[in-house]
Amino acid sequence: MDYILKVFLILLSSILVNNFILARFLGICPFLGVSKRVTTAVGMGAAVTFVMALASVITYIVQYAILEPFGIEYMQTIAFILVIAALVQFVEMVIQKTSPTLYKALGVYLPLITTNCAVLGVAIINIQEKFDLILTLFNGIGGALGFTLAIVLFAGIRERLEFSSIPKPLRGFPIAFITAGLMSVAFLGFQGLIK
């Protein structure tokens, strides 16, 4: 029972309290790049969720089956990036095959998931927090869901911003940055949720 509670707390924590974008400030690039429309934001969120969940599990295995037995933990970053890059390539192929429109909409941001620091971040945090495999998986999924939540909310706001009258110097990215900052402040409200 305690374990299930722990899983639930980790999910809650990674989605809301330690949201990768709005609390940890990781993965800002796709957050700003692919958040012009809700539909593409959902697609990006799905792609990142897939990559993050799989990357969490595989990097866990890589860490404890390869890096630690051989005593080469210092290769962690390179090994993890290798895993993530391969996964992203795979996701790219699947998306191109299944949904060419989503593939076009995501554009360069799809291969850029490789360098999305949220993905590498979740893998490294899993190891640092000494999670076991199940918790690792849920932390990955939770982090990705948090990413999806943030980017979809942000895309919804930006779609509305298109039709509002914004002072000329603030149009486009400046207002997006301000919005992102305000969202981050709003998410600060979750900080006291888990003790």
């Binding site: 390869i66 051989f70 290798l82 895993v83 390539q89």
Partner: peptide, 16 residues
Amino acid sequence: SLGGMGLVFGAGLAFA
């Protein structure tokens, strides 16, 4: 170890 990982992933991607 890293070369082996690369090889495995490469083969997987080639198959995919």
